[in-house]
Design a protein around this nucleic acid. Sequence first.
RNA 1: GGCGCUAUCGUCUAACGGUUAGGACGCGGCCCUCUCAAGGCUGAAAUACGGGUUCGAUUCCCGUUAGCGCUACCA
Length: 480
Amino acid sequence: MTHNNPSLRVRFAPSPTGYLHVGGARTALFNWLLARNQGGSFILRIEDTDAQRSSKEMTRIILDSMQWLGIDWDEGPYSQAQRVQLHRDKAERLLAEGKAYRCFCSPEQLGEKRKAAERERRAWLYDRTCLGLTLDQVRKQQQAGLASVVRFCVPQTGETTFQDLIQGEIRFENRLIEDFVLLRSDGMPTYHLSVVSDDIDMRISHVIRGADHISNTPKQILLYQALGEPVPQLGHLPLILGQDKKRLSKRHGATAVEHYRAQGILPQALVNYLALLGWSPGDDREVMDTAEIIRRFDLSHVNRANAVFDSAKLEWINAQHIQRMDIQKLTEIVKQWLDDARLLEQAFTKDSTMIKEAVEMLRPRCKTLHDFSRWGRAFFVNDFDIALEGRKKYLSHPAIFPVLGELAQRYEALAEFSLATAEHTLRQLALEKNLKPGDLIGAVRVALTGNSVAPSLFDVIVYLGQQRTVTRLRQAADIS
RNA sequence: GGCGCUAUCGUCUAACGGUUAGGACGCGGCCCUCUCAAGGCUGAAAUACGGGUUCGAUUCCCGUUAGCGCUACCA
């Protein structure tokens, strides 16, 4: 069921330090699904404040991956780096109101204390050395040229709790939260300040993000409260894990959306699979198009436990989408794929009607677009190899070659070349040569397609036509 | 170590106190068949453990265990 809540505003805020990985894509997707289901807005914000690690190129790739997935945004992309003044202003305000304070402790000093605490197996929180500094002392230190950061003054009593949209109630004791840094010594805002500041200014109503942010949440809630702003609704998505149950990362190999695109995964299949990773429609439906997922999406059906990424199931979903897609559409996609693989330029067929025939035959055995070019090469170009496996299985006996030559002869002589005549001719020849029909069919299949695995042979023969069939049979007969 | 979150077949999940614990991927078998798929039928496979609450717990509460996450002047 879709709704119309224009006040619902969600955002996806990737940092452009790498490709869009499936975890990020899933977060983006769930935000987008919520916005589309609720009739709200989906805002894209690039968190590029870490100049060292961020790049324009990565931003471009992330945007490209999102567009490919069909995840479109209503506002943005905003650059967080261009908003630092807004962040600073808020820190200044907190400073003026006594809700934040200057800290002159050096990273070295802090590191010492942290290490000492670790040695004694004590939990370490910033010890508030600089909290008691008078205005005078602060001025003096600054005049002396000492660098300082701005720390948020965290209330030391009570607890911060929130009702997580996905995880339920979560509570933290305030005394276990340290006075975290708002402004670095170079004046740049830190993550907590930036996110809260931007989410406030962008009127974000629902923050849906990975569960790895749960521990950050109380700090951010405290910031909202100190700034006198309402806290948005919060929802934390379970993490996506690798087969080893560790959080999915580059170590697991294929994590970039880009990668799956290159493998021949369809965007709607990846969307479908990712949606099912943590969410279920509540019944047994699994293969869905994006419109149906939008219609049925609902935060209350999001699971709380982490999920292992299973590429076998992704491939199955992809295969399902390939099977069900409109043949005309699929044909265009395969044609584009062949073109990108530089296969189309040497193809004996460039017209969509013939490609369509091949796609129809091939698709029940293709899980990815890549399978079309891998297993279907001989359907598009004349230049293909005979796989060793097929050679061993059906062309190992030398007596088979003259039979292939003979079949070529008879096919060439056929006045009417059709499925019926092609089949009859072949079976007749097998009978005469005392061959099992299956063996001859297998040998011909290898000769015509290069593989021992292919669609129904006589369909293939009709598809290739008399000329190419005869030529390929002769070529195979000659390799003896 | 501290804090937090989580826990149903190998994996993704359904169940919102009462079911022979359902579906899907993967795996095995059968059917179809010129191979391989697709398709159909089918088999094995789960409530982590221990206490409560209740007439009755997968479900609610507590503990144990395990996994994951956070613990920076990164985001």
